[in-house]
């Protein structure tokens, strides 16, 4: 008689085979798992992409498609810039800005580099500051603050207009172009515009006679009047010296006399230089006083 219970199927050996064991250990290796999970899909994607792009015709087609799409977006009316509006600039400055920027309008706002444009415009001499923006409606709006000329500066390079801070605004051909502005001259005069303006305003009582200020030796000022008269001011506190001269003029008509120069360079010893004829005359009077004749 056979055993009543069915002979159970040969018991499976629970031990893993050598390769199964090694496989399990490999799968438990973190680097291997990472490679399998992330590295392999990434490599597959890259390989597929490279394979597809390997054909030059496909590549050209893809590039053409991208360029087309880009052009289609850029040429939409929302992004077009039709014209440029310049506010706050005189007509000739506006002309200059247009010439400098040389924009080929209409264009798309993608091609406009506003920062570069702003730098270009701000680099122009007559422009103090500028703000750019693209206004709805396709207008490139420039808000320009112009430098206001305050002085005419005569130097070796020619005549320049200076604003109140000493920045050159533009060149002018002749002094008579801007007779309303006072004149300063001399090397380095543009660096001391504020002082020059203070001196000129102090010289207002004798304004009709003032021809201009001359920077001497890049150190001090000479106030030049008509008839070749000159008020030589010290390097330190010139305003006070000028006030003294004007006070003397008010009291004794100093400048109306035949004086070539009033030398205030030494505060303790103001000196007058007389014209030769006046000198003769004074010597004659002296001799009379002393009774030599």
């Amino acid at each position: 008689m056979w055993p009543l219970r069915r002979p159970s199927d040969p018991r499976r050996d629970p031990a893993p085979s050598r390769w199964a064991y090694r496989m399990q250990r490999l799968m438990l290796t973190p680097a291997f798992r990472l490679t399998l999970r992330a590295g392999l899909p990434a490599a597959a994607v890259v390989a597929a992409g490279a394979l597809w792009l390997g054909d030059a015709e496909r590549r050209a087609h893809l590039l053409g498609y991208v360029a087309e799409a880009r052009a289609a977006i850029e040429s939409r009316p929302e992004f077009r810039v039709e014209l440029m509006a310049i506010d706050g600039a005189s007509a000739d400055l506006a002309e200059e800005i247009r010439a400098t920027l040389a924009l080929d309008l209409p264009t798309t706002s993608f091609d406009l580099d506003l920062d570069a444009l702003r730098e270009t415009v701000a680099a122009l001499a007559p422009v103090e500051s500028v703000s750019l923006r693209i206004r709805p409606g396709g207008v490139l709006q420039l808000e320009v603050t112009e430098r206001v000329p305050a002085l005419v500066w005569r130097s070796a390079e020619g005549l320049h207009l200076l604003d109140a801070e000493g920045h050159a605004v533009r060149r002018i051909a002749a002094r008579t172009d801007r007779p309303d502005l006072p004149l300063i001259a001399g090397e380095g005069a543009n660096a001391h515009v504020a002082e020059a303006r203070a001196l000129l305003s102090a010289a207002r009582p004798i304004a009709p006679r003032v021809r201009g200020l001359v920077r001497v030796g890049e150190r001090r000022w000479d106030l030049v009047l008509d008839r070749g008269q000159r008020i030589m001011l010290p390097a330190e506190r010139p305003r006070r010296a000028l006030d003294r001269v004007i006070a003397m003029d008010g009291a004794q008509d100093l400048l109306a006399r035949d004086v070539t120069a009033v030398d205030m360079r030494l505060a303790g010893r103001p000196t007058l230089r007389l014209a030769p004829a006046a000198m003769e005359e004074m010597h004659r009077i002296r001799r009379i006083e002393w009774g030599e004749d």
Binding site: D13, A15, P16, R18, A20, Y21, Q24, R25, L28
Partner: peptide, 12 residues
């Protein structure tokens, strides 16, 4: 085989 079995199970 026995050592392999037990190592595999423990590592698992």
């Amino acid at each position: 085989l026995a050592i392999r079995t037990v190592l595999k199970t423990a590592q698992n």
